[in-house]
């Protein structure tokens, strides 16, 4: 990075640290912060969508839908995340490749599953073998977002379902008495009032999501925890910047990074809580407006 970094083994003190912290490998770590933020940012809206969908299934009066909702939330919440993240992306990847294989290589005569091997024609590979590395990374990233959304969506479904049930029934009956349609009741009365019950659960989920990103490495995506381990580990003279095991410093850095994220999120959730509590007949609502019911 700097001009004096040409021969790292002659450096000492501050200049060694300056050169060390700006190696391309360290820059990969700084970039991975963005990867983590992007993953959280993309997963959160999909999680909410799946959460609403799951809650809708669970609350449906049509029994098969109800059963599907129950199956989704129970199985996903019951399976250990580590197993889930090993299985779902590989299964999804194979499903996509299998579909592409059926379309693009219909004249293929060999079996797709040969013993342990999963073999599709070259044209059906997703992404293609000759594709650039960033395409592979993006595809893996998309698989990761999908897997994360499915897992956290199941938790969100339960939270939203519970919050919808917590809204006082007389609020809905009043709305009905005013002659509102089912749709109007849901969007004007039921959903606006359920947020105050859902937010504590959702903020928990958000924190778990933030901390869950190291699972990305199972999918070949390097997040900051991976880089902290890799960079901080013992380096012999084979490396340009040999050093003993200094992972503790990297982990201290991670600690501050995650605490900062938590702190910022908490401020955000506090504000949201204030907003959704306004005018509600709850303790928070009264305290927030200072009024009486």
């Amino acid at each position: 990075m700097f001009e004096f970094c040409v021969d790292p083994k002659t450096l000492e003190g501050i200049s060694w640290i300056a050169c060390y912290l700006t190696t391309p490998k360290h820059q990969s770590m700084y970039w991975s912060v963005l990867v983590v933020l992007l993953l959280i940012g993309l997963t959160a809206p999909f999680t909410m969508l799946l959460g609403f969908f799951g809650a809708w299934l669970k609350r449906s009066v049509f029994l098969p839908f109800q059963f599907m909702g129950w199956l989704y939330t129970s199985t996903v919440r019951g399976v250990p995340e580590l197993i889930f993240f090993l299985f779902v992306p590989i299964a999804l990847d194979q499903l996509v490749e299998l579909i592409r294989h059926k379309i693009k290589c219909s004249d293929w005569t060999d079996a797709v599953y040969q013993g342990n091997d999963f073999v599709v024609c070259t044209a059906a590979k997703m992404p293609l073998g000759e594709a650039e590395q960033w395409v592979h990374h993006t595809w893996n990233f998309a698989l990761a977002v999908t897997a994360f959304s499915i897992v956290f969506g199941a938790f969100a479904a339960n939270i939203i379902d519970g919050a919808l049930k917590a809204v006082p029934k007389n609020q809905l009956e009043t709305a009905q008495a005013y002659g509102m349609s089912k749709r109007q009741i849901f969007f004007r009365v039921h959903m606006p009032q359920m947020w105050v019950y859902a937010l504590p659960g959702l903020s928990n989920l958000w924190q778990v999501l933030i901390k869950g990103t190291p699972l990305l490495f199972l999918l070949g995506i390097q997040d900051i925890v991976y880089w902290a381990k890799e960079l901080g580990g013992l380096k012999t003279q084979v490396y340009q910047y040999p050093h003993p095991d200094i992972r503790v410093w990297y982990f201290l850095g991670l600690l501050f990074f995650y605490l900062l994220l938590t702190w910022i999120s908490q401020i955000g959730f506090d504000r949201l809580t204030k907003i959704v509590s306004k005018g509600q007949a709850t303790m928070g609502g009264q305290a927030a407006t200072g009024g009486r019911v």
Binding site: T23, P24, K25, S28, E230, Y239, Q240, Y241
Partner: peptide, 9 residues
């Protein structure tokens, strides 16, 4: 020395 990631990544 089999395989590792150097400081250039």
């Amino acid at each position: 020395p089999y395989n590792f990631v150097d400081d250039n990544g």
